[in-house]
């Protein structure tokens, strides 16, 4: 379960910017929700805080009862590596690594033996229907294919939480729909909690729950 209690995030600079302002939110285990809102509303910041990529300025973020603010950097990394899979809008694949190597990366970081890593990576690439392109570099793939590699990487340890930041934002409509279908499919098969930040109304409405963020606050929380 993901719980946010009075979470705020401010950015200090020439001008102080409040990206999130006292957010209270609970997302149940296995739930699939979309987070929507205009640009600059704080959706990505919210996702980054839940994913432990950033720290809240105030309030608590709790994953399965574990408070993230009390963790040091290495503990936070361990949370990311054991519980969270990330899907980014611009894929963030390492350009010099092949598909197989990109997917293998989180497993290597856990110190898995090479053979086991390769077997799991192959299995995941098969799952996202890229089993025949394991040796290709990201540059040799289309946008949709790259996002599928990124999804396979996010799933490498079958994380209980999958966070996707505009997963279809950089894809055409058809490819976007395909990726969305894949995420839904994986959600139902793996039972992970899925949070999707999106601008796309269709993507948002495909999720059973949609959280609207505006000016750093939860403006609306719709369950279908």
């Amino acid at each position: 379960m993901i719980t946010l209690r009075g979470v705020s995030k401010t950015f200090e600079g020439k001008r102080k910017v409040t990206a999130l302002d006292h957010i209270d939110l609970t997302i149940e285990r296995g739930e699939m929700a979309s987070i929507v809102g205009p640009s600059g509303s704080g959706k990505s910041t919210l996702l980054n805080l839940i994913g432990g990529l950033d720290r809240a300025s105030a309030g608590e973020v709790e994953l399965d009862g574990q408070t993230l603010s009390s963790l040091n950097d290495d503990e936070l990394t361990k949370v990311r590596r054991d519980k969270i899979g990330f899907i980014f809008q611009f894929f963030n694949l390492l350009p010099t690594l092949s598909c197989l190597q990109n997917v293998s990366l989180p497993l290597h970081l856990r110190g898995w033996p090479r053979k086991k890593v390769e077997a799991r990576a192959q299995e995941l690439l098969d799952l996202v229907k890229l089993g025949a392109r394991v040796e290709h570099l990201p540059d040799e793939l289309s946008g949709g294919e790259r996002q599928r590699v990124a999804i396979a990487r996010a799933l490498s340890i079958y994380p209980p939480i999958l966070l996707a930041d505009e997963p279809t934002g950089n894809l055409d409509t058809n490819t976007g729909a395909e990726i969305l279908k894949l995420i839904h499919d994986l959600h139902s098969r793996l039972g992970a909690t899925v949070l999707i930040v999106t601008h796309d109304k269709a993507v948002a409405e495909s999720c059973p729950r949609t959280i609207h963020i505006r000016d750093g606050k939860v403006f609306e929380d719709v369950r279908r």
Binding site: G51, K78, R80, D82, L93, L109
Partner: peptide, 16 residues
Amino acid sequence: RRELGVLQAVGGLRNQ
């Protein structure tokens, strides 16, 4: 920078 960021994002510890 991004590559190392990705490494950390997918679970690479600081020491790693």
